[in-house]
Amino acid sequence: MRPDIDAKLLFDTAREGRVAPLLEEVRGDPSALGRVFARAARVVGRGVGPGGGRVEDVARVRLLVAACETVGPDAAAGVVAGQYARGDADERRAVLLALADLDGLGVGDAAVPVILDALRTNDTRLVAAAMGPYAAAHLPADAWRHGVLKCLFTGVPLTAVADLDARRDAELDRMVRAFADERRAAGRDVPEDAVRLLATIR
């Protein structure tokens, strides 16, 4: 097992054996990332893994990190944007999940457009993945608040929103209250997550 990898990204021996040649291929030629990313699930596996994350997501996160490390800080943001643009929905989810691990590799604010793109979709897998630690650290306040609201609208549990307590503010509380009022006026249930959030207004 590699000590330099975050424990949540480690596989069992069999999967490590299958992901290793893919990582080597990407480190040898970062332009191979697109092809390798697409077939990663077929090679490494898919479904819930030992660490709780999905195997295919973890494999792709590690591939993207490897590519960004190889190209260096000046080119990393371009690799991220390109891989998101060329990916299918599963690949895009993995790019979004990887952003937290790419923060130290020169991506900076440059991946904000990728987050905004994901938040424009109605695909809950993308919306949930978009609201992780990278969004909490880099998204402007208005976009971040609308991201939280989008989660409530589309049924994404607020556990997907990183640093919710730290970043929430009076404006978000107002928006959530208005959302709840609108639901009640329409005779519809208010999502549990919204009720819980409103119950803790300071």
């Binding site: 299958r18 077939r39 699930a41 077929r42 090679v43 490494v44 596996g45 898919r46 479904g47 195997v55």
Partner: peptide, 15 residues
């Protein structure tokens, strides 16, 4: 079928 785990080494060798 493409199930949770790759089926055989042969199934992935051609990719």
């Amino acid at each position: 079928l493409q199930r949770g785990e790759p089926v055989t080494a042969a199934a992935t060798a051609g990719e």
